[in-house]
């Protein structure tokens, strides 16, 4: 972004430039509105009253502000189990994924590690060719993993792409001399990893963990293939049942008072559930945001 500071010092003279800047700024504002408006609309609707949403009266801000939508959502039993399940799958899945990524990326980042080529090829093939949905399903059935929590943690872990990104980060950011001196001091590889590499790699660890966590939190398809038991389902599946199937199961609501409130509030509830499902991601977003550029870009540097 160095360009910016330098160009600003030179005053804009031509009218063409002024038109150009005015046009870009207007377009950017329009794009901002296009992206932000649906998000604001969903948020506002979730805080509006049932009749206002059903009549289509919400346009920008909440109409007849109320928390009824959220009250209904949280009285829904499967939302609670779904939320807890999703939290578990996200933490366990991301931890496992991160562990695999680090253990693959660190050896591959060492220039003196012979066998690098062999292992890299082994990982890259998975990016190019997949056996397909059904052979994987049969494998999971044969391993007795279907209908267990392990299915969600194991089926989607490890991404070659993230491994390559992390390997490149290690390679670029950690000077080889550090290893040499550590080796002379009698440091084992495992200590090198935990005492030298990881403390120097907060950015990439944060980004990898976040991508793995988001992927796990958003998992839907793996769950509908491998899980049948309702008590194992993640929030995304519950959400889908409510949302896309346009199907609200009244037996899920235990409280009579909420049931009465429920009438005419089916639409608000959908909006509230969308917000509840998305909030955990939005919460971690600002913390990791500063690493985005770094984390994504490093992988495209040829290592």
């Amino acid at each position: 972004m160095k360009t910016k500071g330098k160009t600003r010092r030179i005053a804009v003279t031509g009218w063409q430039d002024r038109v150009m800047y005015a046009f870009t700024d207007t377009m950017l504002v329009i794009i901002f509105i296009i992206i932000a408006y649906p998000l604001i609309y969903v948020l506002s609707s979730s805080f509006s009253s049932g009749p206002a949403v059903s009549a289509g009266r919400v346009v920008l801000w909440p109409v007849d502000f109320t928390l009824n939508g959220y009250r209904i959502v949280f009285s829904y039993k499967s939302v609670w189990t779904g939320f807890a399940n999703s939290l578990f799958y996200t933490v366990a899945g991301a931890t496992f994924d991160l562990l695999l990524t680090v253990l693959a990326a660190y050896p591959l980042s060492r220039p003196d590690f012979k066998g690098r080529k062999f292992y890299t090829t082994l990982f890259l093939i998975t990016m190019l060719f997949s056996a397909g949905l059904i052979p994987k399903y049969i494998l999971m059935v044969n391993l007795r993993l279907t209908n267990t929590r392990w299915a969600l943690i194991l089926a989607g872990a490890f991404s070659t792409y993230r491994t390559v990104v992390m390997r490149t980060f290690f390679k670029v950011n950690i000077p080889g001399e550090l290893f040499d001196s550590a080796k002379i001091d009698g440091c084992s590889e495992f200590r090198c990893l935990t005492k030298i590499v990881l403390p120097l790699s907060h950015a990439i660890i944060a980004v990898t963990a976040m991508f793995a966590a988001v992927a796990n939190w958003n998992t839907y398809f793996t769950a509908i293939i491998y899980l049948r038991k309702p008590e194992l389902l993640p929030l995304q599946v519950v959400l889908r049942e409510v949302l896309v199937a346009q199907n609200v199961d009244l037996t899920q609501i235990t409280d009579a008072e909420t049931l009465a409130m429920m009438t005419g509030s089916a639409d608000v509830m959908k909006f509230s559930l969308i917000v509840v499902t998305t909030v955990p991601i939005v919460i971690i977003y600002p913390f990791i945001q500063k690493y985005f550029q770094k984390g994504v870009m490093i992988g495209s540097v040829k290592g």
């Binding site: 660190y106 050896p107 591959l108 003196d112 990982f123 998975t126 997949s130 056996a131 494998l139 490890f158």
Partner: peptide, 26 residues
Amino acid sequence: NWQLHLMILVPVTYVLIFYYGPMYGI
């Protein structure tokens, strides 16, 4: 380099089971 090989054995085992395993079923 046995330590490095040992480390990478973990992800390799995972990939062999869950990515290469299904290839047998093709």
